[in-house]
Simulated assay, not measured.
Amino acid sequence: MNHLLNQKSWRFIDQSIVALNRTPLESFAMDDTLCHLVGQGMSDPTIRTWVHNETIVLGIQDHRLPYVQEGINFLEQRGYQAIVRNSGGLAVVLDSGVLNISLVLPEKDNAISINAGYDAMVDLVKSLYPEIQDDIKAYEIVGSYCPGSYDLSVEGKKFAGISQRRIRQGIAVQIYLCIEGSGSERAELIREFYQLSLKGEKTKFVYPDINPTVMASLSEILNREITVYETVLNLQKLIKFNGDMKLQNLSSEETEYYSYYLNRVFERNKKMLNSND
């Protein structure tokens, strides 16, 4: 087990039950809050699981697309909302078959490099799926959406992407795991979004040329139906096996920090989206 995962005590916050009126912006505010709390020694290291209904989470570069509003209109017609996140660079898909895991660690006493944070998440995922752990590779999958050097794949089929957020000496390593459904269908949606948002124009930033065939869900990779629910349970069992774990939501005092970060995230997202008007 990765040394960063060998914590004496873990806090576990499970928000994997989809709430119809909950936006991913709330999840980004929650991770910012946990970074603050964990980084300042006000909370144990924390693992949070979260799921949202149909949402396309745009990256910093996406809101600069020349015809991004047309792309957003297309997504809304397909039943998706669009938001801009505060970590990572390009668009990803969230829905009820995609599980997000946030690994929140402190670096107040010992600095954690960017790669070390990513490696900890890779090792956590490999431990979750021991039957394919030797087949899981971390490298950029060209043709995937939101490509990066820590894309997780099996035999060239990407099922996960990782990003990081750092605040007040706390680090949130965030991963999306495509567990249920079709990975290629999600990729096709993003491919059409970019086509409509670019219309063939050349831009300073090079957006991905998406090939849906390079993406798959873990159910497709394992050739059996697995669910978000069972993955959350397996994650809890894994953490309990390696140390003490407490299921613990925010206290009333911690909620005050959350309100601050939530307001900041909402204001930032509003500003980013309005900049395209």
Rank of each mutant, 00 (worst) to 15 (best):
E185T: 13
S252G: 08
A187G: 00
E254I: 00
Q248K: 06
Y194H: 07
L233G: 09
L196P: 04
I239P: 09
R224T: 07
V206G: 12
G181R: 01
N249S: 09
V232A: 01
V228K: 06
E256S: 15
N211P: 07
N211C: 01
L250P: 06
L247G: 09
K204A: 14
L233R: 15
I226T: 03
R224W: 05
L198V: 07
G200F: 14
V214N: 00
R186A: 08
E201G: 05
Q236A: 08
A187R: 01
G181V: 00
I190R: 00
Q169W: 08
E180M: 02
E230G: 07
S259H: 15
I171Q: 09
K240Q: 11
V214R: 05
N211Y: 09
M215K: 10
S182W: 11
Y229Q: 14
S219G: 00
A187N: 00
V232I: 00
E253H: 15
Y176H: 12
K204E: 11
S217D: 13
Q248A: 03
M215W: 09
G243Y: 01
F241S: 10
G243V: 04
C178W: 15
A187V: 00
T203A: 08
C178P: 07
N223W: 02
I175A: 08
I171W: 07
I239R: 04
S251I: 01
P212M: 02
Y257P: 09
I175P: 08
G181Y: 02
T255N: 14
E201F: 06
G183N: 00
N242Y: 08
K240S: 15
L177G: 13
K246Y: 07
T203C: 14
I239H: 02
I175Q: 11
L247C: 13
Y176C: 06
Y258N: 12
Y257L: 14
Y257G: 14
E188P: 01
Q195C: 04
S197A: 14
S197C: 13
V228S: 07
I175W: 06
L247V: 14
E256K: 14
Y257F: 13
S219T: 01
E188K: 07
E188Q: 10
Q169R: 13
N249D: 14
Q174T: 10
Y207F: 05
S184W: 10
E185D: 15
A216N: 01
F205G: 01
